[in-house]
Design a protein around this nucleic acid. Structure first.
Lengths: 217, 217
DNA sequence: CAATTAACGCACTAACTAGTTACTTCTTTA
DNA sequence: TAAAGAAGTAACTAGTTAGTGCGTTAATTG
């Protein structure tokens, strides 16, 4: 009987595509890690969702943690690259700052996995991000961008002097991040549907107000 | 041989104390859940750290999730009770608000488990907190407190009108919470030790400035 | 087209994990 | 002080889980 049925019948001849498989795994992993955290995520589930064999995960990413690290790096690179595409350096300082606040909010809103991935990484004391050099480089660009907006605003006489760009950056992230990452407990604590259409609209307006008042003379 | 050695020798006669055992379990669980999240926490580890038998956990708390729920409730009740003890209603509105901002910051700083527990609960879409009625009641008091500070400030002509107390509350939490819960990734992203003594001092000052500018006329 | 390489898949394992069974030991109270 | 009840323990189970060994099949290249 050996060698008789080389091609098992009734199974489609698989098309081989390493890049596509890798991409499917990464996509499934992102969702699974975001939903359950690093510890709660199941490698078998990721493989199934990716329509890939579990063996492939270990082939491409070495380990569950290796996979997590790649997912996390990709997530950071994505937001950093989207920020760069805003071209804030070409805009009026006030307009640029408001645009950044709005962008940050909308990015978190559209990519809630980013929030949970970052939370998960902090639970693990950033051990995966520590290894990544490219993340530092791209983050530096963001701080420089905010720094330059602030400087131009000061020169134009509309922003006050002495605002630390890093603190400002952190605060821009904070006012959106906290609201959205804690939307489930928040909805209970504040007895208000934080994700309702008008609640979201009210929040982004409030955040813009917060940041503008912070930097204005 | 039966009944011959009723008391096994060489073992201390255990002192029985249900409340103390329960408390030790809760304390160990809080640390374990905070460190590893609900999914990553190990019931065996909690039992060991609590110097209790695992069976006791199931005796007192029914399940791992039951234990988590109690830990979480206790954590919320603790911060809400500490807030009430500030007696902000007796203070000048500006002083009261600054005191609340400072308190919130210091509470997070001294109780980092609170942050991870809340993060973990949000990963699970607040399914445990949902069941708790007492949390809603105590949260309402906090919102009312901030609400009353705002009102008194408006009457005194020092705060502007129309600031939503819930949004303000969220923002007070946000500016501290985000910084501290993301201190590990933050230290990498911003290439600065966010937990250094002067960095912490700088941050709380920045946060006070942010909140004050937000409410001031 | 043969040989090599790379993608893919099956079935397994060793360690772990939440929860339980069946018991012993201490404390309280009628 | 006997009996009941509550606190505490050890050993176990049934199901998971990350990770692998090894064989198969498709694509590539000399």
């Amino acid at each position: 009987m050996t060698g008789e049925q080389t091609k098992k019948p009734g199974r489609k001849p698989r098309i081989r595509d390493a890049e596509a498989t890798k991409a499917r795994i990464l996509d499934a992993a992102k969702k699974e890690f975001a939903k359950n955290g690093l510890g709660g995520a199941r490698v078998d589930d990721i493989a199934e969702k990716a329509k890939a064999n579990k063996r492939m995960i270990y082939h491409y990413f070495e380990s569950k943690e290796g996979l997590f690290q790649t997912v996390l790096e990709d997530a950071y690179l994505d937001i950093r690259s989207a920020e760069q595409k805003l071209h804030l350096e070409d805009l009026d300082p006030k307009v640029a700052l408001e645009k950044l606040v709005r962008f940050t909010w909308e990015y978190y809103l559209k990519n809630p996995e980013f929030l949970t991935l970052v939370n998960s990484e902090n639970l693990h004391r950033a051990k995966h991000l520590k290894k990544s050099e490219i993340i530092k480089v791209s983050s530096r660009k963001l701080v420089n961008m905010v720094s330059s907006i602030l400087e131009r605003g000061v020169t134009a006489g509309i922003f006050r002097d002495g605002v630390d760009p890093v603190q400002l950056n952190i605060t821009i992230a904070a006012v959106g991040y906290y609201y959205l990452t804690n939307r489930f407990t928040g909805t209970i604590i504040y007895e208000r549907d934080l994700m309702a259409r008008d609640a979201l609209e009210q929040r982004i307006q409030f955040n813009i107000e917060t940041i503008m008042r912070l930097v204005t003379v």
